[in-house]
Simulated assay, not measured.
Amino acid sequence: MRLARRPTTEIVEGDMTPMIDMTFQLIAFFMVLINFSDIEQDQRVNLPASQLAKPPDTAYEEPITIQMTADETILFNHQEMGLEQLRTAVRREATLLRSFGDSKFDEATVVIRADRLSRTGKVQEIIQACQDAGFDKFALRGRQSDVPTL
């Protein structure tokens, strides 16, 4: 007696739930680890290279980023401005931080990213404008380099 096999027309599919679950876990993992500090950086600013430049050990509590391009255009809060406009904007920022309490203002660090071709005197004017508004913590940015600069 011969038994005939019936052809199976049933489609076998794998369960995709574990793969989707793992994908969402990886997305969540990388979202936690991503560094959002690059958001404040403008590509028009070409930082000077220095052997002493290194990233900060910890993130700043209240960073205020001011950038200056090679043609000495000042970028603050995603707006192009001159020095007098910066003075007004920095005073407004200081007033806003003081309204949250002295601790916010005391923790504020002004991060200055100036292009390597910009004049040092202009950077000093930016620092002076920030000091006039009451800020006293500053950080200057540069690119890391293995070439000795001293």
Rank of each mutant, 00 (worst) to 15 (best):
R6T: 11
P7I: 04
I11L: 09
V12M: 01
V12A: 04
V12I: 06
E13A: 02
D15R: 08
M16Y: 12
T17G: 15
T17I: 03
T17V: 11
Q25K: 15
L26M: 11
F29W: 00
M31A: 07
V32Y: 07
I34Y: 02
I34C: 09
N35E: 11
N35L: 08
Q41P: 00
D42Y: 04
D42P: 06
V45E: 01
L52T: 06
K54W: 04
P55N: 08
P56H: 09
E61Y: 03
P63T: 01
Q67I: 02
M68P: 08
A70H: 14
D71A: 12
E72K: 04
I74M: 04
L75A: 00
Q79K: 12
E80N: 15
L83D: 10
Q85S: 05
L86M: 10
T88S: 13
E93Q: 14
E93D: 12
A94K: 14
A94N: 10
A94H: 05
R98L: 15
S99I: 07
F100E: 14
F100M: 15
G101S: 14
G101N: 09
F105G: 13
D106Y: 10
D106Q: 15
A108M: 11
V110C: 10
V110F: 03
V111F: 05
V111T: 13
I112F: 04
A114R: 15
A114M: 08
A114F: 03
D115R: 12
L117E: 05
L117H: 06
R119L: 04
R119G: 04
G121M: 05
G121K: 00
K122V: 10
K122Y: 12
Q124R: 09
E125I: 02
E125M: 03
I126P: 01
I127L: 09
I127S: 07
I127Q: 14
A129L: 05
A129Y: 06
C130A: 11
D132G: 05
K137Y: 09
A139L: 06
R141A: 15
D146K: 09
D146W: 12
T149L: 07
T149V: 11
L150P: 12
L150W: 13
